[in-house]
Nucleic acid binder design. Sequence first.
DNA 1: GCTCGGAATGTGAACGTACACACGAGCAAT
DNA 2: ATTGCTCGTGTGTACGTTCACATTCCGAGC
Lengths: 336, 336
Amino acid sequence: MEPEKVRAPNIRDVAKLAGVSYQTVSRVLNEHPSIRDSTKQRVLDVIREIGYRPNQAARALVTSRSRTIGVLTSQNAHYGPTTSVTAIEHAAREAGYRITVTSVASSEYPSIKAALDHLLTQSIEALVVIAPQVRVLEAIRELQIDVPYVTLQNADVGGADHSMSVDQVAGARLATQHLIDLGHTEIMHISGPQDWIEAEARMQGYLDAINAADLRTRAPILGDWSAHFGYYAGLELLRLRDFTAVFASNDQMALGFMHACWDSGLDVPGDVSVVGFDDIPEAAHFFPPLTTIRQNFGEIGRRAVSLLLAELQGADVDHGQIKPELVVRRSTAAPR
Amino acid sequence: MEPEKVRAPNIRDVAKLAGVSYQTVSRVLNEHPSIRDSTKQRVLDVIREIGYRPNQAARALVTSRSRTIGVLTSQNAHYGPTTSVTAIEHAAREAGYRITVTSVASSEYPSIKAALDHLLTQSIEALVVIAPQVRVLEAIRELQIDVPYVTLQNADVGGADHSMSVDQVAGARLATQHLIDLGHTEIMHISGPQDWIEAEARMQGYLDAINAADLRTRAPILGDWSAHFGYYAGLELLRLRDFTAVFASNDQMALGFMHACWDSGLDVPGDVSVVGFDDIPEAAHFFPPLTTIRQNFGEIGRRAVSLLLAELQGADVDHGQIKPELVVRRSTAAPR
DNA sequence: GCTCGGAATGTGAACGTACACACGAGCAAT
DNA sequence: ATTGCTCGTGTGTACGTTCACATTCCGAGC
């Protein structure tokens, strides 16, 4: 015979057992200064003994503070976003917040709006947007989000700055310039999907560097971030082989492209130089180890949270950008 | 002059504007059957007009149902867990649930307990444990989790089955048997960290297959899942080179190991055969494309959720295992 | 016309907490 | 002794919703 649906202990149960009023218990929980040490101890003992846990719903209801940060992310398990989410969670928890993650099912507008709506009904106090599609920003503008938010892409939403990001344009410029410095003049770019903010920024950086060096501009290939795409695009591109270097918009596509090179009997970096973007942990062990652009995803996440928390306390804080870093490995060399 | 801290509209505001009682509004929200269509429409119009959103905290308080599923995951951004989380989120949302994710900072007991505690104070209705450390299960047992939960590792917690997983032992057996079938007799195993359930299971599968074939058992190398480890372990192992095949406990370590092979002037699979585990999307583009064990992380996540939801409705459901699958690519061949 | 009964709607709790305020005790200054 | 202040604690109420129950409406059947 098990006990019939025992109600979870509440603040009054604790109070009764400790021989104080419920308000005193509340004060203990909220670390009110003026409470006698002996009383506090007694209450804490009872709490531990009966396994009392404060009811967050009740708390949220009365304070109208959910202590929750919403995170909007994309469906796919990309290394960068994932790393950022983990960092966000960690930073948030340190500050006594929790996070609730929702991913957008597709880059279609209704799906984005639904996801955003889902977050907003949870009365989140702040929002981190990692889902890097252009349309997400439109949705944000339209839904008139009234909580502080930060996007992890540097994109103009119009008006105030709401981004906290690694400077993608600078990173792409760095990558391209590296190839130019090596002496390459025919440089291809394999880009990410057109509706991704990062893809566009990296493409922009590529074009900037190409133009600055007065080289021939070539139409970027629009990919989908996957190694598969890099591979098949590579097979196609290598039939012409009217270039000596490739800047891929992420490491996975670079990997796929290099795969296409071996399959075509080409040597990297002997015949073709390849640069990636992100510096995923595996990139150092690709064949050959990949020259790429490192960005600190964890740092971005942490900074985003501290920025939001500051904003929640009314402070005015600098949004800003983190500089990316070129990591030269073995996939790039001077052209033959 | 902005409006002073406008209170969000509540159910009574809607009621007043629609000319009905608040209870009627509540009924509309909860899709109560007996409500006149015209009334319902009127209420819905008002809701849309003033942008009313039900307050989840109040709802949770009175129903004592949070409609939240907790997810406990590990710190690192591994492909498998991440994919599962995304799938869980999706499945949960479909069912009107949200998820709240917490990651364990380390595999130390206090950190695990803290994370679990953090989830429990959020009055989650169910729990999915992805954090695959052995200690997590101890913590679960000890904290007497009183909500339905599922671990995404097949581990005996004792008592009822709470797992929903890909059969890791079978997968490892498959991988090892593949090497044995090719004619290898000296097979090394690079394992994951000792305190990870999956690492142990895969090691067990390896040992099973080795023993069944009556081959020499070799002490597995204990790694940390990273490509870096695979690389340095590889450099070390290859100095002796008293083996012809390696089964790595995940694809990343396999990659690192292969890197060590090139650096040592060895050919894969000519000199050494390599098998990985997981089939991450990049594995098909490693050099050479990696033979590995595929497991469907998304499916696992989805099934875990439907299992929990069924349990929440009092149904008794089969936990169970999914069979992994051997994917033969180019990194394995008969020994010379 | 009256009763009956289901459909449609309304009223009074209750959920568990935090905030505003009130109150008594103790102590210092007057 | 009185006042005034601080410290520690208790009392009432509100947060926004749902549940149980109460009430009204309206048409069918006698």
